[in-house]
Design a protein around this nucleic acid. Structure first.
Length: 547
DNA sequence: CTGACTTGCGCC
DNA sequence: AAAGGGCGCAAGTCAG
């Protein structure tokens, strides 16, 4: 595979191809890339978010890339390489390089820290590191998948998720009342607020203030320590119903109300940024509009264009299936042969009910040992020894402070080495022994989950990467200028679910390709191991019609 | 006043 | 005795 390393030099781009260097004016880059795409090529660049949006804006799609930023992050942490081969004076700067999420696709940011980096040298270091790795094949697959994910992410942002602002607004008005003037509550919330104040005998209560609400609840004699919904549903009092209703609608207003529409929906598209590798486990993060938590409530507003459809596909119980496959647990794989893994466990006589099966498996993967899921463990251990041993060993390793890895070699962070969102990060032993133990066990739960969540993310990346290529080929006969958005294309990805926007007449074929891509992903990761990844696939006009 | 942290809830 | 993974986001809260 021919590789071309692109390096910015002011208004020009140096294209390094083997020993030769071609200088291309920035304005001519799209044509240059398009021309070279006629034969197989892998574009090597510092960071996809700095190059690809401008190419897409010019209607240029690339088949392959190597995203040095993302690859660097993986190689830095994997236990599969000799870190000395990657080390360089610039390592810290590569570590610190951030993706860009500017709306301006025409120009690179001024004073971009990426400009101080040498992509050719970093590329050489990465190749040398890979060449010396005893697990080269796995790592290469992971790097290729990660880079392909970067292309998908850029393409999804470019295309955007079709979004009907008019339907969204109607939905808001129906539930909240007309859009209020700034600083005022919508009518429905105002009504509920009055009910809450009456029920609690607190005429000045601000229902948006958890502190005030908690105090008022306690003053009314209710035994609560917080104001969470699941706390409230457990008590009986006239305030509960209006308060729960208030919370639900207030959430809709603040998270996905009119200002969300104003901010994130333009020209009939919801545009946010997807950040591959944004989560330590390898899952994607997102930026803007809460793209990874679009509530079911507003999904009716996601509607395919006229003459187009969504193909919505998700994998049933991805993580337990991945666990079965990566641990080589044949009994668990057998239960996964059924479309519903949990029902498969019931049918095999492992547990009595589907609910028990789910609780037990989730507990095994998350480290929940309280109550029911804990009581399930001995049975699961007997029945699925390999699978349970894998997560238990990952937990023990984490408790010992060791690094664990996914199937393809993404390494977990070193405990205390860096900030993480929620887990405490005690760099120094501090506090009591109990506190230390608590932290160690918390880290064990993290590493226990890391190996499964991370490997599931790898499966999903392979699925996406293969699907992306299948969709492109499928649209070859499609009229248009060869732009992504003229053909069936991915518009959304959420851990184990994809949305494809496709011309209606291709929807059936898209559904088939989505399934074939899942089969490919399973083979890539797990070879011939007999595990299924059944998909729920729906061809719909609106996202809300799926599932 | 700003900025950092907390609360609570949405998604998987 | 207690022990549930990963995120993003907005508004409230509170210290400086």
């Amino acid at each position: 595979m021919n590789r071309i390393v692109l390096v910015r030099r002011g208004d020009d781009v140096d294209a390094h191809e083997q020993a030769s260097v071609t200088s291309v004016p920035l304005a001519d880059l799209p044509a240059f890339v398009r021309e070279h795409e006629a034969t197989p090529v892998r574009w090597v660049w510092d960071d996809t978010t700095r190059w690809y949006p401008a190419l897409l804006a010019q209607g240029v799609r690339v088949a392959r890339c190597a995203d040095l930023r993302l690859q660097h992050a993986i190689l830095r942490r994997t236990p599969f390489t000799d870190q000395r081969l990657l080390a360089d004076a610039s390592t810290a700067e590569w570590d610190a390089l951030q993706p860009v999420t500017e709306t301006d696709t025409a120009l690179f940011p001024l004073a971009d820290p990426a400009d101080r980096l040498d992509p050719v040298a970093e590329h050489d270091r990465q190749l040398a590191t890979l060449a010396a790795s005893p697990e080269r094949r796995r790592l290469e697959l992971l790097l290729a998948a990660e880079s392909s994910g970067a292309l998908v992410a850029a393409e999804m942002t470019h295309a955007g998720l079709p979004w009907r602002a008019d339907l969204h607004e109607r939905l808001l008005t129906e539930q909240l009342g007309p859009r209020p003037v700034a600083g005022h509550r919508p009518a429905a919330l105002e009504r509920l607020a009055a009910e809450i104040r009456t029920a609690l005998g607190a005429p000045a209560l601000n229902p948006d203030s958890p502190v005030e609400v908690l105090r008022a609840l306690q003053t009314a004699g209710l035994p609560v320590e917080d104001t969470r919904s699941w706390t409230l549903v457990q008590i009986e009092h006239p305030v509960v119903a209006p308060l729960l209703a208030y919370k639900k609608l207030a959430r809709l207003l603040t998270a996905n109300g009119w200002s969300w529409l104003d901010t994130w929906v333009r020209d009939g598209r919801f545009r946010s940024w997807f950040l591959p590798g944004g989560v330590v486990t390898g899952r994607w993060a997102s930026n803007g509009g809460g793209a990874l938590s679009v509530p079911v409530q507003i999904r009716p507003a996601a509607v395919a264009d006229e003459g187009w459809r969504f193909v919505v596909a998700d994998v049933a119980q991805l993580e337990p299936r991945v666990l079965a496959a990566m641990s080589g647990d044949l009994a668990m794989a057998e239960a996964a042969r059924a479309t519903d893994l949990y029902q498969g466990m019931v049918d095999a006589g492992t547990v009595a009910t589907r609910a028990e099966a789910k609780l037990g498996i989730l507990g095994a993967m998350y480290g929940g040992t309280r109550g029911e899921s804990g009581r399930m463990m001995p049975r699961l251990t007997r029945r699925y020894p390999a699978a349970i041993a894998l997560v238990e060993e990952a937990a023990r390793a984490g408790e010992r402070g060791e690094v664990v890895r996914t199937l393809l070699g993404r390494g977990s962070p070193v405990p205390g080495g860096e900030r993480m969102a929620d887990l405490g990060e005690p760099p120094e032993p501090s506090g009591s022994r109990q506190e230390e133990d608590r932290r160690r066990r918390a880290w064990g739960r993290f590493t226990r989950n890391f190996v499964v969540q991370g490997t599931a993310a790898e499966w999903a990346l392979c699925w996406l990467a293969d699907l992306r290529n299948r969709l492109w080929r499928l649209g070859e006969e499609q009229p248009g200028e060869g732009r992504i958005e003229d053909r069936p294309h991915l518009v959304f990805f959420l851990h184990d679910e994809v949305l494809v926007h496709t011309p209606e007449h291709l929807a059936g074929q898209v559904a088939e390709e989505v399934r074939l891509a899942a089969v490919t992903a399973g083979r890539l990761l797990f070879g011939g191991f007999p595990v299924d990844f059944p998909l729920d696939v729906a061809v719909v006009r609106s996202w809300a019609e799926a599932g």
